[in-house]
Nucleic acid binder design. Sequence first.
DNA 1: TCAGAATAATACGGCACCGAAACGAATGGT
DNA 2: ACCATTCGTTTCGGTGCCGTATTATTCTGA
Lengths: 115, 115
Amino acid sequence: MPVELRALQSLRLWHDVNLDLVHEGADLSVRQIAILLTIYLEPPPHTVRGLAAKLNVTKPVITRALDSMGKLDLVTRRRDTLDKRNVIIQRTVAGALAVERLGDIITARAKELPL
Amino acid sequence: MPVELRALQSLRLWHDVNLDLVHEGADLSVRQIAILLTIYLEPPPHTVRGLAAKLNVTKPVITRALDSMGKLDLVTRRRDTLDKRNVIIQRTVAGALAVERLGDIITARAKELPL
DNA sequence: TCAGAATAATACGGCACCGAAACGAATGGT
DNA sequence: ACCATTCGTTTCGGTGCCGTATTATTCTGA
């Protein structure tokens, strides 16, 4: 099952999924989505500093994104016990479900693509 | 060339492309991207009212998105000559290039996906 | 013709985010 | 024991988007 997406199919897929996201009022910014998926796809541990470097944004951006996503219970923070300056970002059940749901949306839209 | 994206591949693709978008500072919101792609993928003509209905958002959202995207020269507005209440949203060269570029990013990232 | 509907734009108050700078806590080197 | 460094957070001023309500313009139908 090779992944063969041509440009027009790619755009159609991007359009359809974004439309779905807008429809269900999932108002996460592009940055927040990038952060969320990094946390759930890349191997832990994740720190503020590491995420900032990975996304090439400033640390306050990460802190604020974690604040807002934390309110939505999509991620949690914990102090690193070995180096108490560090904060370890952890996954949550609700976050895992949300990510899984996004995967389902994309997969479903990809299936519907015209060949 | 069937499109077969499984959930994990979908998420990886979404993550990678969003990361690219963040990296190059293309700070369009999810709504704006949905609007832009609708304009460039769906058959014209496009009106404020039509886009608002399609995205299920209020009309001021469309007006403001057109304002900001107009500043970036991604779209243009023109009064409908037949019914002067209407505004026709038109594509621009810069907008077409931006959309094309997005398609390339997605396609490239899809190619890199682990099987 | 003219009252009402339809369309897009604007006004308003509120909220969230941004970048830069400053800050407090914790660490590590000497 | 110090002091520079690291790390995450907070503060500051500014910007942009949101939803609701209102406006100006244009069309339509009786």
